[in-house]
Simulated assay, not measured.
Amino acid sequence: MRLYIVDAFTSEAFAGNSAGVVLLDSPGDAGWMQSVAAELKHAETAFVEVGGDGPKSLRWFTPEAEVDLCGHATLATTHVLGGEQTFTTRSGELRCRAEDGWVSMDFPSDPPRESDDDLSAILPGVAFSYVARSHQNLFAVAEKASVVRSLEPDLVALRARWTGRLIVTAPGDAGGVDFVSRFFAPGVGVDEDPVTGSAHCALAPYWAARLGKDELVGEQASARGGIVRMSLEGDRVLLSGQAVTVASGELHV
């Protein structure tokens, strides 16, 4: 089987978010896919069936669990395959396109809804102006980007809460960037995800409503960092980013 390592949401190697991409001729066993993902140790590894015509089955695994939606590994898969692609996934049918060095992905919008979650055990002493939940993530808004950049959450406390996933965001502090964010997901074995496409399905509708604009640019302020472009279209979010293939080879087992 062909195996690729791709850095997604970046135009430079060793930045953005790395993903494994495995090309399958037929459906893979879930336990085997989980073992491969644990071996590769990327935030997510994508498994895509390329045999036959029509939409391609696509699944994503962290080192610990299968997930319903992953943006950066979908971007990486589309980057590897090229052209227009339609994937059947646990989040429905996803249409993607690789063109002129960019990959665009049509994902479902996931607007956060205000909640009464107390995050003080996870982030002691940090004040938030808004706390909510999206489909599977806690969601919190800070007043300044500097707060988001300096966060050191208690990952044990977060892992014990609901799905163990948290998006934190604030207004942007650089030209051309509408907001910054970080994403922590110890609940699925990813302490901090470098750049998270699926999180922007929640970030896009929140910031579109707050800023009164449907075209947005977000910076995920992790150590590796990355830029995500978004266009909100009704109940869909068009996510766009670049990618770099770092390695390719064969998976022998």
Rank of each mutant, 00 (worst) to 15 (best):
L94N: 13
A73L: 04
A145N: 09
F47I: 00
W60C: 01
G71A: 03
Q85V: 08
S146I: 13
E49N: 02
L75N: 07
G82A: 09
P108V: 11
A46Q: 03
S146W: 12
G82V: 11
C70S: 03
W60V: 01
T78M: 06
S115N: 14
G52L: 05
S115Y: 12
D118L: 09
V148E: 04
T89P: 15
E114N: 11
A73T: 04
A140D: 08
V141R: 14
G52V: 06
E114P: 15
S129C: 14
K144R: 14
D118Y: 08
F61A: 02
T78R: 05
V48Y: 01
A43E: 02
G51Q: 05
E114G: 09
A121Y: 08
L69E: 02
D100T: 12
E39V: 03
P111E: 08
P63N: 04
G83D: 09
T74Y: 10
D106K: 09
V36G: 01
P108H: 08
Q34G: 08
A142F: 09
F47S: 00
F139I: 13
S134E: 09
L123W: 10
P63G: 00
G52Q: 06
R90F: 12
V131H: 06
H42Q: 05
S35Y: 06
V131T: 11
V67T: 01
E66L: 01
K41Y: 07
I122G: 01
P124N: 03
V36E: 00
A43I: 03
Y130E: 04
V126M: 10
M105L: 15
S109P: 14
L138C: 04
F128D: 02
F128G: 00
Q85R: 10
Q136I: 12
G83T: 13
L75S: 03
Q136Y: 11
P112Q: 12
R133W: 15
T62M: 01
H42D: 00
L58C: 03
V148T: 07
A76G: 10
T86N: 07
H42N: 02
A140Y: 10
T89L: 14
W60S: 00
E49I: 07
P124Q: 04
A142P: 15
P55F: 03
C96A: 15
S115I: 15
A127G: 06
S35V: 02
E64H: 08
E143W: 12
H72V: 05
V141N: 06
G101H: 10
W102R: 11
S57G: 06
P63A: 00
A140R: 12
M105V: 15
A38W: 05
